[in-house]
C-alpha cells in the first residue's frame, strides 16, 4: 500500500467511524458492522486498522471510551463521539463533498 492511499483510507476511516457514532455510542464490532452496512459492503474494514484508528482518534479527543456492562453482565468498551469529533465530522464531510464534486467534474471534462 502506498502512503498516499493509506492516508486516504485513514482519513476516510475516521470519517466513517465518526459517522457511525454520530447517532449513538457503539462498541468496536458494532462500528465495523455499521460501516459495512452503510457502505453496502464496499468497505470491509480490517479489524486491526480499525482498532488502531480507535486509538488514534481517542488520542486526538475525537471519540471517548465508555465502559458498559452488557445484559449478560460482561464489561464492554463502547465509544462515543465528542463535540470536537462532531465538528471534525462536519468539516470532513464538507471537504469530502467538495473534493468529490471536483473529481467528478474533472472526469467528465
Amino acid at each position: 500500500m502506498t502512503d498516499a492511499s493509506t492516508d486516504v483510507i485513514q482519513g476516510t476511516l475516521d470519517m466513517l467511524v465518526l459517522k457511525s457514532l454520530s447517532l449513538e455510542p457503539m462498541h468496536g464490532f458494532g462500528i465495523a458492522q455499521r460501516i459495512e452496512q452503510i457502505s453496502r459492503g464496499v468497505f470491509k474494514v480490517n479489524p486491526g486498522s480499525l482498532m488502531l484508528a480507535f486509538q488514534r482518534m481517542e488520542r486526538d479527543s475525537l471519540i471517548e471510551p465508555e465502559w458498559r456492562t452488557s445484559d449478560k453482565g460482561r464489561r464492554a468498551k463502547y465509544y462515543r463521539i465528542t463535540a470536537k469529533g462532531r465538528r471534525h465530522l462536519e468539516r470532513e464531510t464538507r471537504d469530502w463533498d467538495r473534493r468529490a464534486t471536483a473529481i467528478a467534474r474533472l472526469l467528465e471534462a
Partner: peptide
C-alpha cells in the same frame, strides 16, 4: 477489547 471484538 480485542477479545470482545472477536466474540461479537
Amino acid at each position: 477489547e480485542v477479545q470482545q471484538y472477536i466474540e461479537h
